[in-house]
């Protein structure tokens, strides 16, 4: 993986500078176990665009949100904060 992440504070930076913080899910709750278990142990595993949290570990040390296509690693935009825009 060597894609670039558009950090709203630091600009386009290589992905290894960041720590992944999971996707911001809208899982339909309760389809397999229960809400808590799904939240903790199940990922949407989307093939397509999703909102993700990343922590800019070797940069501004802030959490940001990006929209990434998991099939192509195409990142379209980055926002401050931890919530989907």
């Amino acid at each position: 993986m060597s894609f670039l992440i558009p950090c709203p504070h630091c600009g386009n930076r290589p992905q290894p500078e960041f720590a992944y913080g999971g996707n911001i899910g809208d899982d339909p709750p309760g389809s397999m176990l229960d809400v808590l278990s799904e939240d903790l142990y199940f990922n949407d595993n989307t093939a397509g665009e999703q909102f993700e949290r990343w922590f800019h570990r070797f940069g501004c040390e802030r959490w940001i949100v990006i929209r990434r296509d998991t099939r192509t690693n195409q990142v379209s935009e980055g926002w401050e904060g931890v919530d989907a825009p």
Partner: peptide
């Protein structure tokens, strides 16, 4: 811990 702290603060 630092990353988790900042996440909690931001959330």
């Amino acid at each position: 811990v630092y990353e988790a702290f900042l996440l909690w603060v931001a959330e």
